[in-house]
Amino acid sequence: MIEIKDLHKSYRMGSNSLHVLKGINFTAEEGELVAIMGSSGSGKSTLLNILGMLDLADSGEYTLDNVPIKDLSETKAAQYRNKFLGFIFQSFNLINYKSALENVALPLYYQKVGRKERQEKALNYLERVGLKEWATHLPSELSGGQKQRVAIARAMAAEPKVLLADEPTGALDSKTSYEVMDLIQKINDEGNTILVVTHEEDIAHMCKRIVHLKDGVIVEDKKIEQVRAQQYV
């Protein structure tokens, strides 16, 4: 599903440049649930941004679902993001003047799905994250866990190939964190490919595979026995 070869990325900070990713090689199969771990500054967020086509690599190859991702215009990138990727952010990033339903429907709107169908689909996804009754509420009326679940529903709505979660539990207490992870595991059980960036060990162990990043290189890549979040909820 995802294939990365010898990925390099450096940022220029004034006169000296900061080499963040120093040759990353990585593959993820369909249906995998991968945790990307590392301390801050290890380059995990940069890697996720490149995977999410929000940032461009300096060199290296990136193939997503057999489509080579390179030389992207902004228009093309937007198209690919919409078609291939769902984002889940640490700070939820819901649009605060739109209701939960409208937020979830947004990616469908960009796919030019008709209004009625869009709302039906969005409501369906809200139901799957258990927030059907909250559809008309604004994000400000929701709790953190609820917001993140709306964000997950939104990421799912466009039926992307890959879900990218950047510290999805970073802003949540552990109980809601487990609820969110439970949801992510269930989505993964349905066969979706999910990448989770985290620095929390317990969260990482709820994935099926952990990739450790340190100073811009992968130092460890192992499959693990998944801890089900269900038992903590």
Binding site: T75, A78, N82, N93, I95, L106
Partner: peptide, 16 residues
């Protein structure tokens, strides 16, 4: 700015 960023991450075209 942030909202526009979100929209673009969700796949809104720049022209839109």
């Amino acid at each position: 700015t942030k909202e526009i960023g979100i929209r673009r991450a969700l796949g809104e075209q720049p022209w839109s």
